[in-house]
């Protein structure tokens, strides 16, 4: 008989209520995404519930089940409390959870995404630039799961892009050089600042990009570009995006 119980670290990405007091929990672990049943966690006296909040980083013990594994123990290692104390951070947290759940399909990238997600969540707790952290995470996540946009060379002809490049084409898969403008007539014209932000969040570390000062309209454009990019590849709408917009519009 194989091992019935196993342990792992994970981040809670999604929870769905089922039955009387149970929940189905989606967990991001370095080994892949696990969808497990947590029994009785909606009861006030549940020992598990406080350790299974959305986006908390937990040490988990699971039992192998027939259709789904069952959570038997959980200890919250980091609960990212600051995410819950401010509406914008909370909305950003939801956004991170949804993007991760939507884009990560197979196990290959899980270890990398897990690390990225932890870095992003830690930064979201303290950083003043929620936007930059979200751009960075979205870009790095796309990179890790195989949807890296072309930002160094032209997406069509492969020539090195310089400061004259001003067209973003989701259809062609990245930025276009001025010569290839005709390959996508619906390409979006973007400013040099937007292009630079896109390149920086792709290449640099989060601690580097977070310190940059960027005007609000650049953030807004980068948001739209990255969001459309994600939707194009996941073929799904990002439902938490609306809440994020709603909350952001009134805070900044």
């Amino acid at each position: 008989m194989g091992e019935r119980l196993y342990r792992c670290d994970g981040i809670i990405l999604k929870r769905i209520d089922v039955g009387e007091a149970d929940r189905i929990v989606t967990i991001l672990t370095p080994q892949g995404k696990i969808i497990a049943t947590a029994r009785g966690v909606r009861k006030t006296q549940s020992k598990l519930s406080g350790h299974l909040e959305l986006l908390s980083h937990c040490q988990l013990q699971l039992a192998v089940g027939k259709t789904r594994d069952v959570l038997t123990q959980s200890i919250a290692v980091e609960r990212f409390a600051q995410l819950q104390q401010q509406l914008v951070r909370m909305a950003a947290g939801y956004y991170v959870a949804e993007l991760t759940d939507t884009l990560l399909a197979d196990e290959d990238a899980a270890a990398q995404v897990y690390e990225l997600c932890l870095v992003a969540l830690r930064t979201l707790c303290t950083s003043t630039s929620v936007e930059m952290a979200l751009h960075w995470y979205t870009m790095q996540l796309c990179d890790a799961v195989g949807y890296r946009p072309q930002l160094v060379d032209c997406a069509v002809c492969g020539s090195t892009l310089d400061q004259h490049a001003n067209l973003w084409s989701a259809v062609q898969g990245g930025m276009l050089c001025p010569n290839c403008a005709r390959s996508d007539i619906q390409a979006t014209r973007v400013s040099l600042a937007v292009f630079k932000v896109l390149r920086l969040v792709q290449r640099e570390s989060l601690s580097y990009v977070i310190a940059l000062e960027v005007p609000a309209e650049v953030h807004a454009t980068v948001f739209v570009i990255l969001r459309r990019w994600v939707m194009r590849h996941s073929e799904r709408a990002i439902r938490s995006a609306q809440f994020l917009d709603d909350v952001r519009s009134q805070t900044f």
Partner: peptide
């Protein structure tokens, strides 16, 4: 008292 409830509460408060 979960994240959704807190989100709603924070939104209401604002």
């Amino acid at each position: 008292p979960n994240l959704e409830g807190e989100a709603t509460a924070a939104y209401l408060q604002r």
